[in-house]
Amino acid sequence: MPIIDLANPTRFLSLAERALPWLAGTTAIAFAIGLNLAWTAPDDYQQGATVKIMFIHVPSAWLAMGCWALMSIAALGTLVWRHPLADVAAKAAAPIGAALTLLCLVTGSLWGRPMWGAYWVWDARLTSVLVLFLMYLGVIALWRTVDDPARAGRAVAILTLVGAINLPIIKWSVDWWNTLHQPASVVRLGGAAIHPTILWPLLMMALAFVLLFVTLHLAAMRNEILRRRVRTLMLMQAQAAPGSGA
């Protein structure tokens, strides 16, 4: 099927209907394998069993950022190519992205409690993820404020693209800001090479999260298309009802 056919929401719907059960099944299998691997992975010699929070925390952090990237591409689709599915994709992605970011923050703070002695420190990483979370919530609030999806779509697209430019700047400035004030930096994963016994479960969990994201996103897009159809039908019906003429 040529890609242009997918632009047609009806074609998209039928494809989504067929793909969703398979995706859901694959996601479940991937999670079963991933969680099993994570369960059997060795404990860290310093951190003990708490290190296993990483298997949830890191994939959700990756996807939280990936989701904004996806929304940015969708925003370009809305503004530049005026693709009919672009703002549907953007709208469906925002709550999932926000949920993943929240998951990342919550697991992070649960992990931080035994590591740093506090649920939250104003570390550069954490802070920029918190800002990302705030931006997701802003986008969702904007979607909820405007009733007309076409108008809301354009406003959100602009906000998303500005956010995409702003996020790296926030990241750098926070890094810079933070090194000024907090000399005791927290050693995190990035530094040392990861042992394969941890790397493989992590990659498996990442795959499971990606599949979960695709499944949820597809289902949310389908719901959004149906919701818009219901809205259009109601508008048409209201106009056809007696007494609509001015």
Partner: peptide, 11 residues
């Protein structure tokens, strides 16, 4: 059952 936003001026 329709939101008032969907109604025309006459409605």
């Amino acid at each position: 059952g329709f939101p008032a936003a969907y109604l025309s001026a006459g409605q």
